[in-house]
């Protein structure tokens, strides 16, 4: 297993595009999360009105335990950056035909796919750990009181966030394997949510109960939007096992479809 991960990393480690995209992604992740509070303060200072109408210090954006879900959800928006990297990595193998040489050299098609999946797992894990650390640090800085274990409620969103990233990267990998051309794949990836939305809206009227089962919807459902709670609305502030189950099934299917396609096509 580790051997297969090493193979895929070897392809990426000297690839400038990989570092540029991953660098931008992780930088945005850290900078975005760390500067959120400062940004709110700056808003408060600059526009006095803003500071008066909502007392920013009263919004516990960065307070334990709110911060867990707030950051996990916000970071989820950025996963598209990683997804584009994954698409480039897999479609390169088709445009350069290096997948062909990999198989000739002695990888099985399963192993080839597994090596890509392992990289996806690794990127998801790094994202999760990073976001967890940022939440920890900023929480310790901004929380007025530290009240554990109450402050840890919602920490379950981190495994959920991990699954969210991995599921989406699996989806991107599958699109890359099916389409094989980078430009087309990225366009489809960017529009995939819109496409799902259109289909969903049409079905919604007849079978509203099916909505949580849509693939991208199920991925989004893992960590629900938390901010509505600051407008006195009810939000789900726990990880629902149902949403985990649905997303797991889709993750399995994405990778399985990629496997089927690789298995039966001439490379």
């Amino acid at each position: 297993m580790l051997h297969l991960l090493k193979i895929d990393l070897k392809k990426l480690i000297d690839y400038r595009t990989f570092w540029v995209i991953c660098g931008l992604y992780f930088f945005t992740l850290v900078a975005g999360a760390a500067s959120g509070m400062e940004f709110l303060k700056w808003l408060g200072r600059t526009f006095e009105q803003f500071g008066q109408s909502i007392n920013i210090n009263r919004i516990p954006l960065y307070h334990f335990p709110d911060i867990w879900q707030n950051l996990a959800w916000s970071a989820g928006l950025l996963k598209l950056g990683l997804a584009i990297m994954v698409v480039i990595s897999i479609t390169n193998e088709f445009t350069y035909r290096t997948i062909r040489q990999n198989i000739i050299d002695g990888l099985s098609r399963e192993q080839f796919l597994i090596s890509k999946m392992l990289t996806n797992l690794m990127l998801s894990a790094i994202s999760m750990i990073l976001i967890f650390l940022i939440a920890m640090v900023t929480g310790l800085i901004y929380s007025p009181t530290l009240d554990f274990p109450y402050g840890l409620t919602g920490i379950g969103f981190y495994p959920a966030y991990f699954l969210e990233v991995f599921a989406f990267l699996s989806f991107s990998l599958m699109l890359g394997v099916l389409i094989q051309r980078s430009g087309l794949t990225i366009i489809l990836l960017l529009n995939s949510y819109l496409i799902e939305l259109i289909i969903r809206e049409n079905i919604d009227n007849y079978f509203p109960q099916t909505v949580p089962f849509f693939p991208l919807e199920s991925i989004m459902n893992l960590v629900p939007l938390p901010f509505a709670r600051y407008a006195f609305q009810e939000v789900r502030d726990y990880v629902s096992l149902g949403s985990i189950a649905i997303a797991l099934v889709w993750t399995f299917l994405f990778n399985y479809f990629a496997y089927l396609k690789l298995k039966k096509s001439d490379i």
Partner: peptide, 10 residues
């Protein structure tokens, strides 16, 4: 087979 195949950026 056919043409040499390598990663061009390596």
């Amino acid at each position: 087979l056919e043409h040499p195949i390598f990663y061009p950026y390596l």
